[in-house]
Amino acid sequence: MNKLLGYLLSIIFYFFFFLTLVVFQPIQWVCYRFFGYKAHKVSVDFLNFFLTYCDFFLGASVKFVNQQQLPLDRPIIFVANHQSMYDIPGLIWFLRKYHVKFISKIELTKGIPSISFNLKYGGGANIDRKDSKQAVSEIIKLGRRMKEHTWSAMIFPEGTRSKDGRLKPFQIGGIATLLKVVPTALIVPVAIENSWKIVQYGAYPLSAGAQLRWTVLSPIEPADKKPEDVVAEAENQIRIKLKQLPA
């Protein structure tokens, strides 16, 4: 039934999703060129508000749970599992007060209305996966911006999307690099559920009725801990939330 409904609802969803991207492209440009970072940030926040709630056109539900008292006066490294592109708008919107920046593939900085503009000018790190030196350099620059502006970063340490929702082993590289530059950053795991179900049949039809969930888990103080131990603790928290403990 979800797949059958998806044939119809996907058309409606894609229409409003891409309309939102097209509408916010000039809005972002004006905000950034004439009013600077703060105005651009607000435009990006509202872009992702509309992108998040476009999920309703698929009959999906959206729920964000954050019972943690997270600081606003220190950088945060959010560590999340990654299931689909539909993870991201909700993360940006619901965590907007933490100025979350993403580490993205450099290919995404071209050709996508609104998204490419934000990746170019929003303050994140755009990395070339074929050039490890460039990638590390960009992550270091992001860490410096986090220190200077008290921004946060979002890292998907699986390295790629999980097409079936099963958690992949976490890699420590990006988190370890950021912690070298921003050793005072707080590590905060985020568990994402059911985003993969939207694209379980591919780009068309999208699946209807998915119950999207983002849950902010207990913060981890990295002081006096090895990066691999911090990453393992974050992974374990997410595994417990997703009920995917190792065999």
Rank of each mutant, 00 (worst) to 15 (best):
K3R: 15
Y7H: 03
L9P: 02
S10I: 04
I11A: 14
I11D: 10
I12F: 14
F17G: 06
F18E: 02
L19I: 12
T20R: 03
V23H: 08
Q28F: 02
G36I: 00
A39F: 03
K41I: 01
V42T: 13
S43M: 01
S43Y: 00
S43A: 15
F46M: 14
L51D: 12
L51H: 13
C54Q: 13
S61Y: 05
V62L: 11
V65N: 11
Q68H: 04
P71N: 05
L72V: 06
R74L: 12
I76M: 01
F78I: 06
N81G: 06
S84V: 06
D87W: 00
I88P: 05
P89T: 08
G90S: 06
G90T: 10
I92D: 07
L95Q: 10
R96V: 03
K97H: 11
K97S: 12
I103F: 09
I103G: 13
S104W: 00
K105D: 02
I106L: 10
T109E: 06
I112A: 00
I112W: 02
P113H: 07
G122M: 06
G124R: 11
D128N: 15
D128F: 08
R129Q: 14
A135E: 07
V136M: 11
I139C: 08
I140L: 12
G143N: 06
G143I: 04
K147P: 05
I155D: 02
F156C: 09
F156I: 07
E158P: 11
R161Y: 05
D164R: 07
R166P: 00
P169E: 12
P169W: 09
F170A: 05
Q171G: 09
T177D: 10
T177L: 13
T177V: 15
K180Y: 04
V182M: 10
L186K: 07
A191R: 07
I192Q: 14
S195N: 15
I198S: 07
V199Y: 15
V199A: 12
Q200H: 02
G202C: 09
A203H: 12
A203Q: 13
A203I: 12
A203R: 15
S207R: 13
I220Y: 00
A232T: 07
E233L: 13
E235I: 09
E235R: 14
N236E: 14
N236H: 14
I238N: 06
R239F: 01
I240K: 13
K241E: 13
K241Q: 13
L245S: 01
L245W: 00
